[in-house]
Amino acid sequence: MILEASDISFSYGSHQVLEDVNLQLKPGMTAIIGPNAAGKSTLLKCLSGMLRPKGKVRLEGITLTTLKQEQLTRQISFLPQEFNTTAVLTVYETVLLGRVHQLGWRVSDVDTRIVNQLMQEMKLTDIADRYLNELSGGQRQLVAIAQSLAREPSVLLLDEPTSNLDLRRQYEVCTLIRRLTDSRGISTALAVHDLNLASRYADWVYVIQNGKLRCGGEPQSVLTETLIAEVYGVEARVTIGQETRPVITVLGPVPVASSDFQSERDAGNDV
């Protein structure tokens, strides 16, 4: 399904967080990148229908606000960044809760089959009956992702799903999300900090800066040295890796605003 945002703006009180953002999520994987507080999470919340921005968000041409909550929840699954809970629930129960709107008094075979399959795919079977409070931050994050996927959504919005995972798990989870995205035809968007993850797994990359959409497109056209320096204030080298996807090597931070950076470095060379 295609989820489209046209001219959406959002502010918390007088603080404008998003301004006239236009973008389209198509079946496939979209990475949303940008510095902290750029508005990535707010954008995802607006796209999920949790927040109601100015402008329009449409799912297959239908405005989200006209959809019933049930339809909305069934189609669009949003995973918030934070998952802090003191609930005394097992991993299995937590993943099962992804199906909260389908669950009956007796848990149906359909629901358990979906959960079982996901638990296997995400290698969570060994910790299925552990309680949430016994898990590490990374394990919790995996459980939360599994719960999101248990909803079997058409649009999957993940807010920094890999922030607590170790290197290997980051790639495993992204590979899994990529595979499910392709096999189920999901339109997936994930907000990430790691540009190499974005570059490697995403079909499209959107860059958010100060609440505005700076640019978007295929990774190789978006992730350039200039853009990284300007958006993140970081000096990076971009080379071409597998499947012509850019590989970013960060050299170091730019201590001052990026436009000043060039002249300052030139001045340094002169000495």
Partner: peptide
């Protein structure tokens, strides 16, 4: 089920619809 999901935290429960 909704009450159970509520204990996952405010934002999480809301994101579950």
């Amino acid at each position: 089920w909704q009450l159970t999901a509520l204990r996952l935290g405010e934002s999480h429960a809301r994101s579950l619809g």
